[in-house]
Amino acid sequence: MQTARQAARQRRHRRRIMLGTALRLVSTGLLAYLVVALRPDRQAEAPPSAATSVTTPRVGATTAAGTSAPSPTGSATPTGSTAPTGPRTPTVAATTATANPSAPHTPRPPRTASGTASLAGRIKPGTTYRGVATSYKAGNGDGACLFGPSNDLMIAAMNTTDYETSKACGAYVRVRAANGASVTVRITNECPLPCAPGQLDLSEQAFAKLAAPQLGRVPITWSLVSPSTSDTISLRYKTGSSAYWCGIQAIGHRNPVARLEVRTAGGWRRLPRTDYNYFVSADGGGCGGAIRLTDVYGEQLTVSGIALRPNVAQPTRVQFARH
């Protein structure tokens, strides 16, 4: 009996040992699992999320249409568009010794080979144009350019296309006929449709220098010239000008005026040009202050001391260089 009881106790002891060992193994395994599950880099084992394709354009990259892709750090302005604010319109790089620098924030365009491509418009120096000459009664010599009456009737009206919102006003052009005759005229007027591009409507006096008046219409070639003159430029404020609105006109300039700017508290401000040949400050900015003129060759002349006196041609002491 004693032996049987001892054997039973031994069996029970062995079972407790085996159960304890099993519990320890299970505890160790569970602890190891928790350590692995909670380690810091566990997120690397997470299932991947859906991928999103992001394409960043390269600076200066060219699209299929041939235009430059915008830089990711700035907005693009279409080539040839007008800057949104008048004062920030680019100014010419070529200046004379009398010209003052533009406002520091004003961007400057790249130089061109001729220096005049961005200034001259349709009528460019060194270019010969073909068309026809007709004639009209010039009366006292005044016209759409509003220069006023003149005793010099060697003048002409430019066709609307080449008149280009009065850019042609004041230009001197040499006109040649097929018979070899020539005459130099100043543009003071506009010839509306049906005047075609290249056509000049000459005063009767100027037409007579080329051909018999009864012909009425002759083929011509013509080109821009920069004549000799002893006159200086005059400036005139339009009737109704004040400190709140003004129109400014240049008179007697040797070369066509490409730009007129006025000095304001923020720097030089370019004024828009009207088809009646005045540069207008709609809010009065710069009216009565310094004025800067730029011709189609890029020369700049700065004039101070012009009083805000409407409808008075005030002479200056400056004139554009001859070319």
Rank of each mutant, 00 (worst) to 15 (best):
R273F: 11
G288L: 11
V173A: 01
R292I: 07
T28S: 04
L146F: 05
I220R: 09
F207N: 03
V175I: 10
P70G: 03
V35A: 10
V257Q: 02
T128Q: 08
H253F: 00
A168K: 01
A171P: 00
P48R: 05
K167V: 06
L38Q: 15
R11Q: 14
T89A: 14
R322L: 13
T184R: 00
L235M: 09
T128W: 03
G143D: 03
I187H: 00
G198R: 08
S49Q: 06
D295Q: 00
A171E: 01
A177M: 14
G126Q: 04
V218C: 15
A120W: 03
A307I: 09
T98Q: 07
R9N: 13
Y136L: 01
V280W: 05
L215A: 15
G126L: 02
M1N: 14
R273S: 11
T56G: 00
T134C: 05
T239A: 15
T160G: 08
A290M: 10
Q2A: 09
A133N: 13
T98M: 03
P104R: 12
I155C: 02
Y33N: 06
A97I: 09
V35F: 10
Q43P: 02
K238R: 14
R111Y: 15
L31C: 07
G289H: 09
I233A: 00
P125W: 02
P40N: 03
H323M: 09
D283Q: 07
D152R: 06
G121H: 11
D283L: 08
T77W: 06
N159H: 03
T165Y: 09
E204Y: 03
T77Q: 11
T274L: 15
N159V: 05
I291T: 13
I17F: 10
V185N: 00
K167D: 10
V35S: 10
V303P: 13
N255G: 04
S281T: 09
Q10D: 12
L193C: 04
G139C: 09
R174Q: 10
P40I: 01
P57A: 11
S81W: 08
A138L: 01
E261G: 07
D295V: 00
G143H: 04
T127Y: 08
S281V: 10
R309V: 15
Y244P: 11
G80Q: 13
